[in-house]
Design a protein around this nucleic acid. Structure first.
Lengths: 145, 145
DNA sequence: ATTACAAACGCAACTTAGTTGTGTTAAAAA
DNA sequence: TTTTTAACACAACTAAGTTGCGTTTGTAAT
């Protein structure tokens, strides 16, 4: 069950924000709504599409809050532009963003997908390397494109 | 055989630059020399250590040239800061940077290692995804730290 | 050795991402 | 209704990276 299937209207979104300890302001509702219809966004894409504010600080602080509360997470794309994407249910929490899954970034539509079905294979490093985190990003063309 | 084992003095470095179609200027020799003693560098680290120029444009254009000629390549670190690292022999060329290897970034000393010994395992994506490129970054602690 | 040409340099000016501080507004809890 | 605190807006700032252009210098051809 994906989160966005649960989100039918503005009220649901407001409740969702509240559950994560975030106040429902017109802007933050609009922003979260935007995330439910875009699998990932850059700050630039957000700025273009948001009506409620023109202020970049407001946008950054909202993204910061969303991330801290486990609603979204950051994934740098192939050109090192930061993309923000919704966390799937159970994937992230206020404490930790677990990213033991593959990120797929579509070259064409720029969507970021968290491929939950495929686990990152175990990587055996040479002697002496202590592995703590792994990030695997695949670029290509997504099913929709 | 690693490149830096071949590089004993300034003259070797000048020859190496020449072989890649880059003019030997005091700054570019110094920069390449710096790469032979640091497995990876950020532009900030470069600026700190370079004597020959204070000009950031000069630095960026040199990095650009080095990359285009297959001498170095770019690897974003865990905090999305761009790191520049020497290409191993046969790894990259003027045409293409083949990155079918793992990048290891040390949390402690910030070194970036290209782990040539370990190939990126094959990733089977769900139906519909067309894979074109894979980037695998491991963070942790390196043998030296 | 001299010239000629392109590569490299330096400077100024610019763009864009992201940050910090501060005073004000508004949502939600008391 | 009052109080508290999150969220907002604005200004000012830093840092990365880019573009244009006139000048200098390495190198290859004469």
């Amino acid at each position: 069950m994906l989160i966005f299937e649960l989100m039918k209207n503005q009220n649901d979104i407001a409740v969702y924000l509240n559950q994560h300890g975030i106040k429902k302001t017109a802007f933050r509702v609009e922003l979260l709504d935007l995330f439910f219809s875009n699998s990932s966004l850059t700050q630039e894409e957000i700025k273009e599409q948001i009506k409620e504010t023109k202020n970049k600080v407001t946008i950054y602080r909202a993204l910061e809050a969303f991330e801290k509360k486990g609603i979204i997470h950051k994934v740098p794309d192939i050109n090192n532009v930061m993309r923000y994407a919704l966390c799937q249910v159970g994937c992230c929490s206020e404490e930790a963003h677990t990213h033991n899954h593959i990120h797929f970034i579509c070259k064409s539509c720029k969507s970021t997908y968290c491929i939950e079905e495929v686990k990152i294979p175990n990587i055996n490093l040479p002697e002496g390397y202590q592995k703590e985190g792994v990030r695997l990003t695949v670029e290509g063309v997504c099913p929709r494109c």
